[in-house]
């Protein structure tokens, strides 16, 4: 039963991250996602400290706002200080992340958080951390509830705003001419990314969530050229990496989140090498065949 809970939670998280990640990588904003996932840390620590609990709606809201603030700060440094984008991202998130780590050390003992948890989460504790009401009713693991609620919210968000997200991703100029605010949807997407990051934080930690945001969508991207299929394949990959990741971790007696990411990396490498449409092995084979065909043709 424990394994079932852990795999289910990580699958749900990976699907939420993957759906958003599809938009991120197509917008060439993967590193902004990385920055946000680091930068929400001080928000999480402060929310822990102020409210004293983990499952507070304020924490998600607070960290969501911090994510939007990060996006704003990156834009601000880029536009107002004319700092190149990569440096603007680098400066912003390292600073906020450092602040978060310092806050953890300062509040050590008062906050149920440590550096390990930040790094790779505590998904192994999912089955222990139960949601029990005051009347003693047991509703099962709390993380399970958080993760499916987040997934429902993300699916709703993408479903309702699909047209806008799709257009602002693929053709921002056209989106602007038909009256869709590109920057509004950018901020909404980043807000969604930060909320998902916060919700996944307990389970996979701040850094490995990046892998869930980027690796499955990138793998899917190598396997198909259609956006809809890319979303579906991403979800399938989410299931696969959660399942095999869990058992790899059990086998090696290591971090589950680390193992899930390792499997995601392996899948990406496989797609990179052997994807029927984009893999480099297949491309090389096609090139050879083409070359052979050309050399066989009689010279005119």
């Amino acid at each position: 039963m424990d394994a079932f809970y852990i795999i289910t939670v990580s699958t749900l998280i990976a699907i939420s991250c993957g759906i958003l990640g599809c938009f991120l990588i197509l917008r060439k904003m993967a590193m902004v996602g990385d920055a946000i996932s680091h930068a929400v840390l001080p928000g999480i620590v402060l929310a822990y400290f102020i409210t004293g609990t983990r499952d507070s709606i304020w924490m998600i809201v607070g960290a969501g706002m911090l994510g939007i603030f990060t996006t704003f700060l990156i834009e601000f440094f880029h536009k107002k200080a004319r700092l190149q984008t990569d440096a603007a991202i680098g400066v912003t998130f390292t600073w906020l992340f450092a602040l978060g780590i310092i806050l953890i050390s300062v509040f050590a003992g008062q906050v149920d958080l440590d550096q390990d948890c930040v790094l790779y989460g505590e998904i192994a504790y999912v089955p222990i951390d139960l949601w029990i009401t005051e009347s003693g009713q047991n509703y099962g693991p709390r993380a399970l509830h958080v993760s499916y609620i987040v997934l429902i919210l993300i699916v709703l968000f993408v479903r309702v705003g699909f047209k806008q997200l799709y257009l602002t991703t693929f053709d921002p100029a056209f989106a602007a001419t038909v009256g869709i605010s590109v920057s509004l949807w950018n901020y909404l997407l980043m807000g969604a990314v930060s909320m998902t990051t916060v919700a996944s934080f307990d389970s996979v930690g701040a850094i490995l969530v990046v892998a869930l945001l980027v690796a499955p969508p990138a793998t899917a991207y190598l396997l198909t050229d259609k956006f809809k299929y890319m979303l579906i394949i991403t979800c399938i990959i989410a299931v696969i990496i959660s399942f095999f990741g869990y058992y790899l971790a059990v086998y090696l007696d290591g971090s589950i989140a680390g193992a899930i990411v390792t499997v995601a990396g392996i899948l990406f490498m496989l797609a990179f090498l052997f994807s029927p449409s984009n893999g480099i092995v297949f491309k090389r084979y096609l090139q050879k065949k083409e070359a052979a065909k050309l050399s066989q043709e009689p010279a005119q």
Partner: peptide, 12 residues
């Protein structure tokens, strides 16, 4: 993230 994940797996 993947390299770091592998690193974390090894470290743990």
């Amino acid at each position: 993230s993947v390299f770091f994940g592998i690193g974390i797996l090894m470290l743990t």
